[in-house]
Simulated assay, not measured.
Amino acid sequence: MNFQFSTAPRIVFGPDTARTIPEHTIKMGSRACIVTGKSPQRIQWLIDDLHKKNIQLHTVSIPGEPDTDRITALVAEARAKNCNVVIAVGGGSVLDAGKAIAALIPNKRDVLDYLEVVGKGMPLSEKPLPLIAVPTTSGTGSEVTSNAVLLSIKHTVKVSLRSTEMIPDIAIVDPLLTISAPPSVTAATGLDALTQLMESFVSSFGSPMTDALCREGLKHGAKSILKAYNDGEDIEARTGMALASLFSGITLANAKLGAVHGFAAPLGGEFKAPHGAVCAALLPSVMEINVRALKERDPGNPALAAYAETAKILTGNNDAQITDGIQWVKNTCAEMKIPGLGEIGVQKKDFKSLSAKAARSSSMKGNPLELTEKELLEILEMAL
């Protein structure tokens, strides 16, 4: 039983913890690059608090998903401002951008030199700048992961800049910051968190440590996601989803993911749809095909027991079977109006290209077994 485990050196969790950002920042640097979403005015409270600590600020906005060109330009700006600490406050895209900026300011090669799959995958030679990550959605767990997902416009695919050195120094998870997320965002991000927990739980790289976090995260996520979707101001539900998201980030960083995220990378590069919604559309079909393939080719694989346990946790029924867990996912997606892949523009003519790209994706490495091309195509057909 050999495994390694890495996570953020410090995690600060709970309502109102975001107010502690300035006191952490002052210990890490005096010239902060603040990375936030399309509306920086939403964190004016934080900007005011940082100014009171005499911290110089350079604010950058990430209005959508970060791409390599945008990150390259923002890194150049932050270098010119001599920033020595990065604070990322926002959803998964913002946190990924913050991690990439913190990593690339001291590592000065072209970003493609460091990227997986489409680049050279070179290791970072210099330690990234200190980074504080503060999520405003409950989904990606990016505040505790070791990679930044970037869109390579040239290759029309999302790929990762990855290093354990990129795990944020401090993750501040304040459920109150997620209250303003609308139902559609709550649904997409929440289902992303559940997908990450499920994929980590059945991953071939799982360990007793990640399994324990998966079980706890799934328990909180299953009982909280619909409550948070139906009532965004339900603090208990928001706290449960924030915990599920946090745990999903820790588990994926250590146990990897699987076929859902293997497909999500090329789909996200070619079609405009929320990452979590894409994952949710794929999840039931990936579960079905994985379970069938495991029973046919590797019936002793522990992933089958993990799928069975997942069904019991999701449904709250100790007698539940794997099929009940798959149906729970389908019912939850339907209640939260998650579109199929066809609704985001995917057509059958895209299947072969998407399957080929998915098979090469780094996320596919954690899938409990290697899927055939026929099985990959069947997943897309079922999710259409």
Rank of each mutant, 00 (worst) to 15 (best):
Ala244Gln: 02
Leu246His: 14
Tyr229Arg: 07
Asp234Trp: 03
Thr251Asn: 07
Ala244Glu: 04
Ile250Asp: 06
Phe247Tyr: 13
Ser248Thr: 01
Ile250Glu: 08
Ile250Gln: 09
Glu233Gly: 11
Met241Cys: 14
Thr251Asp: 03
Ala228Asn: 00
Leu257Glu: 02
Leu257His: 03
Gly240Phe: 02
Glu236Thr: 03
Thr251Ala: 00
Tyr229Gln: 11
Ser245Pro: 04
Ala253Leu: 15
Glu233Thr: 14
Ile235Trp: 01
Ala228His: 00
Glu236Val: 02
Lys256Asp: 15
Asp234Gln: 08
Ile225Cys: 04
Asp231Ile: 03
Gly249Phe: 05
Leu243His: 08
Gly249Trp: 00
Ala253Gln: 11
Ala253Asp: 09
Leu257Phe: 12
Ala244Tyr: 06
Ile225Asn: 00
Thr251Arg: 01
Asp234Phe: 00
Ser248Val: 03
Leu243Met: 15
Leu252Ile: 15
Ser248Tyr: 00
Leu246Cys: 15
Gly240Met: 05
Asn230Val: 13
Met241Glu: 08
Leu257Arg: 02
Ala228Pro: 07
Ala244Pro: 00
Asp234Asn: 12
Thr251Ile: 07
Leu246Ser: 11
Ser245His: 10
Gly232Trp: 08
Arg238Met: 05
Leu226Pro: 02
Asn254Cys: 09
Met241Gly: 08
Arg238Ser: 04
Gly240Ser: 06
Lys227Pro: 03
Phe247Lys: 04
Thr251Cys: 06
Asn254Ala: 11
Ser245Glu: 11
Asp231Lys: 04
Asn254Leu: 10
Thr251Lys: 04
Leu226Lys: 10
Met241Pro: 05
Gly240Ile: 02
Thr239Tyr: 12
Ala228Asp: 00
Ile235Gln: 10
Asn254Met: 12
Ala242Val: 06
Leu243Phe: 10
Leu243Val: 14
Arg238Trp: 09
Lys256Glu: 15
Met241Phe: 11
Asp231Ala: 10
Ala253His: 13
Ile235Pro: 06
Thr239Ile: 12
Phe247Asp: 08
Asp234Pro: 04
Thr239Ser: 13
Tyr229Ile: 08
Ala255Gln: 01
Lys227Leu: 15
Leu243Thr: 15
Ala244Asn: 04
Glu236Gly: 12
Ala255Leu: 01
Ile235Tyr: 08
Ala255Lys: 01
Phe247Met: 09
Gly240Pro: 09
Ile225Met: 04
Arg238Asn: 08
Ala253Glu: 02
Ser245Asp: 11
Ile250Met: 15
Ile225Arg: 00
Gly249Met: 12
Phe247Gly: 04
Leu246Phe: 05
Ala242Glu: 00
Ile235His: 13
Lys227Tyr: 01
Ala242Ser: 09
Gly232Pro: 13
Glu236Met: 07
Arg238Phe: 14
Ala228Thr: 06
Leu226Ile: 09
Thr239Arg: 11
Glu236Pro: 01
